[in-house]
Amino acid sequence: MGNNNHPGIYLFTIIISILPFHLFSQRGLDDSYLDQIVNEENYLPLYSEKNDEIVDLVVMPYGGESRLSYTKEQLIPYLFRYNRNGELEWLFDGFLFYEDRTDLGDGHAFEQHAYLFQKDRARKSEWEWLLDRIFTSGKSLSALNELIRETVVREEIMPSRKRKIILSIPEPLSGQLDWGDLNGKVLDFANDSDRVEAVRWYIDQLVDRFQAARYEHLELSGFYWLRPNDELSFQLMPIIASYIKSQGYKFYWRPSYGRFRGNTWKSYNFDAVYLTP
């Protein structure tokens, strides 16, 4: 008798758990902006010498303790393949490296949604830790550049251009008081000006380290806003976008498919948006 009762209990629990989430995910959807997509001019143009846009972008979650290290061997499937004639063909020309946490469950969050599943918010020390991870020798960017160099020498074939790199920016979490200091000033993330100051510092760090690495086969294309919707930080986006563009880079976003799908992305001054299903 006891065993016969369990399936009904489990089924009831599943229905109660799923239904509110389903209703929440559907509430407030507005597909009207999709009507604006009437021709190919609404999409990023294909690569040419005139526009130099990314054609094929691959998303590489990297940095956290539980992520792949992206060594040269692990990067091969993203960089090239051999066709039926045994000829090498280059694959993705754009690589987006992003991270939203230091580790699973017991880590620090670099973004508000990830904070729901982590023990704490990322502080300056974690932001610096992530910087070190991104530029670790023999992994991610370093490994990708080395793999291209070795492939060019071995196959005697050059890619048509450098691989373009997009790096994510941590979200300065609203209200955080323990992030740390810059130039002797303790930043208070209850103030938007302090949040912007932290982001500018991080962007400068990324640019300086990328340039210092002197990757001969990689080019820094721009920066990726980590938060997938426009809650809490929407007022920061245009300010950060202006700073990024003043440095000669582009601003990218992947809004969620849901209540906040980024249909106002142009007002935030992003250069390109990729829809996340």
Rank of each mutant, 00 (worst) to 15 (best):
Y274N: 03
L236F: 00
G8C: 03
D230E: 10
V152M: 13
R84G: 07
V273M: 10
K250G: 06
V58A: 05
D204G: 14
K50C: 04
A109V: 03
R195D: 00
Y115L: 09
G258F: 13
F12M: 13
W201P: 00
R161K: 14
E150D: 15
L104Y: 15
T151E: 02
G138S: 15
Q211T: 13
K245D: 05
W127N: 00
G8W: 02
K119F: 02
Y43I: 10
F260G: 06
I240F: 01
H217D: 11
S48F: 10
G2T: 07
L116H: 13
Y202K: 02
N42V: 06
Y252M: 10
I244N: 04
G28W: 12
M60C: 09
R259E: 04
R27Q: 15
F234H: 13
I15H: 05
P45L: 13
L167P: 06
A122Q: 01
L187V: 00
E41A: 12
L11Y: 04
E126L: 02
P77Y: 05
I148M: 08
R27W: 14
L104G: 01
E197H: 03
P228F: 15
V55W: 06
M237L: 10
F135Q: 07
L19V: 15
Y78I: 11
V273C: 06
H6W: 04
P228R: 10
W253L: 05
P159I: 03
I157T: 12
L23K: 10
E41L: 11
K185G: 00
L226I: 09
S160D: 05
Q211L: 09
L34K: 13
D208Y: 09
F92S: 13
N191Q: 12
I203Q: 06
L19Q: 09
E150S: 15
V186M: 11
F234C: 03
V153P: 00
V58F: 03
L144F: 12
F80Q: 04
L236V: 00
A212T: 08
S140T: 07
I15C: 14
L88N: 07
D188Q: 03
F92T: 01
A109E: 03
E111Y: 06
I203P: 05
K185R: 08
S32N: 09
K185Q: 12
L34C: 07
W201Y: 14
I166G: 04
L275T: 08
L96G: 02
N229H: 15
F92Q: 07
P277I: 09
A241C: 09
T264A: 09
Y43H: 14
